[in-house]
């Protein structure tokens, strides 16, 4: 299997690894970078649990090969909050509004919502629901998640 060298910046740190050309970005992050907060819920691009920021854009890391991200700046769920474990406004809002139960889908939601509120700081309810519709949650019935997005928007996400 052909190996390729991938050089990326992940959560501000340079990372370099030799990986199979077919390795997904999700597996690269989980296995080669030991960042296991990026979760795989379907591996076919529907559930959104594996969402990361690739040069600022929210993407499904199960649908991107690591080699395609060569040279990119990547933010995973581990890079969303502060270095000392401080919660970002979105993370704090998910906790405050009970926007998670089992927590497996949560990293994808937090990353998606972080990008969404960055681009739309004062969304309507319909815009929130539309923005969330690319992420699946099986525990919360979305009530707490929708409330968390409203809460984070009110708190004024950067």
């Amino acid at each position: 299997m052909k190996m390729v060298t991938v050089t990326v910046t992940v959560n501000g740190e340079p990372r370099r690894a030799s990986v199979e050309a077919r390795k997904t970005l999700a597996d690269f992050l989980r296995e080669d970078c030991a960042l296991t907060g990026t979760h795989l819920g379907c591996e076919h691009g529907v559930c959104g649990a594996c969402t990361v920021l690739l040069d600022g854009a929210a993407v499904r890391s199960c649908l991107v090969f690591a080699v395609q991200a060569d040279g990119a700046d990547i933010t995973t769920i581990e890079g969303i909050g502060g270095p000392g474990g401080e919660l970002s406004p979105v993370q704090a809002a998910f906790r405050d509004a009970h926007g998670l139960q089992c927590g497996f889908c949560t990293p994808g939601f937090v990353v998606s919502v972080t990008a969404f509120l960055r681009d739309n700081a004062d969304p309507t309810d319909e815009e929130i629901r539309d923005a969330l519709s690319g992420n699946l949650c099986r525990c919360t019935g979305y009530q707490g998640i929708i409330n968390a997005v409203r809460l984070a928007a009110r708190a004024g996400v950067r």
Partner: peptide, 19 residues
């Protein structure tokens, strides 16, 4: 009461079997 589980889960530091 706010959940004790949440700080690790919202930051990607939960530990599931694939981890």
């Amino acid at each position: 009461v706010k959940r004790k589980e949440d700080p690790r889960l919202v930051t990607g530091h939960g530990r599931y079997v694939d981890d």
